[in-house]
């Protein structure tokens, strides 16, 4: 059964009966959901509930994990991403990912952003404008425009994370996955990233895993609550946080969990 969010105008990601095992251990159980286009969808739940594992199914990062077995179907833009004709490398161009720890490459700010486009064969003369546009979209152009050649690691943590977002944007994905993108950042940097994410949904579909419930409440349009590998509840964020339908959701959101 697909939970919550029905009658969505446009579905970007459609998940049907997804099951995932790490060896013998089942980490995801019968997940079905439809993630609407141009929205922010937050996935919340206690540690080990499977939310990050689920996120990593969406760009097939779990392929890198040994003994990981997947059943079920995930379609992004109506294309089965686990289908036989799918090029994983190509999929990851369309489904970008930003990680928990800001992790710019040990190169200059410019090269970090230009890294993806360069490898994907962007014209050398277009690189300047691609980089500028990505940095602008990630709201970090003002801070970096005069020092594009300096090492990315000289930036502050929050700036590094926005640079990583710019690096992802430069590849021009249509969906962006965020895996706890602010858990290593201070509150001010966090607020800036949150603003940025809300801003980005104009052009991208965003799925964010966060262990910070308040963050999910603040920035998302839809929220999914995971518990022990199951999607317990999925629906509009305001509904989940004001009137959840499941007792375990209520317990988690009100901090009475456990």
């Amino acid at each position: 059964m697909t939970k919550g969010v029905q009658n969505v105008s446009q579905v970007q990601i459609k998940v049907d009966n997804l099951n995932l095992w790490y060896g013998e251990k089942q980490a995801l159980k019968n997940i079905s959901m439809q993630i609407p286009k141009n929205s922010v969808t937050a996935l919340i739940g206690p540690s080990g509930c499977g939310k990050s594992t689920f996120l990593r199914c969406l760009n097939r990062m779990n392929d890198l994990v040994k003994n990981c077995r997947i059943e079920g179907k995930i379609s992004i833009e109506e294309k089965d991403i686990y289908g036989p004709d799918v090029d994983v490398v190509d999929l990851r161009k369309k489904v970008g990912m930003v990680f928990q720890k800001p992790n710019p490459f040990p190169m200059s700010i410019f090269d970090n952003v230009a890294y993806g486009p360069r490898i994907h064969g962007a014209d050398r003369k277009d690189l300047d404008s691609i980089v500028e546009q990505a940095l602008r979209s990630a709201a970090i152009w003002e801070e970096t425009s005069d020092r594009l050649k300096s090492p990315a690691l000289s930036l502050s943590g929050g700036q590094q994370q926005r640079l990583c977002i710019a690096r992802t944007l430069a590849v021009k994905p249509r969906t962006i996955l965020f895996d706890e993108p602010t858990s290593a950042l201070d509150p001010i940097s966090t607020a800036r990233i949150e603003d940025l994410i809300m801003d980005l949904k104009k052009d991208y579909t965003i799925v964010i895993v966060t262990h910070n419930m308040q963050q999910a409440a603040r920035i998302s349009d839809y929220t999914g609550f995971f518990l022990m590998g199951k999607l317990i509840e999925f629906g509009q964020t305001r509904q989940i946080f004001q009137n959840p339908q499941e007792q375990s959701t209520e317990d988690y959101i009100t901090g009475r969990f456990g």
Binding site: Q214, A217, R218, T237, R238, F241, Q242
Partner: peptide
Amino acid sequence: IFDILALQQ
């Protein structure tokens, strides 16, 4: 008001 209280702390 409920949205702000519930979602924005």
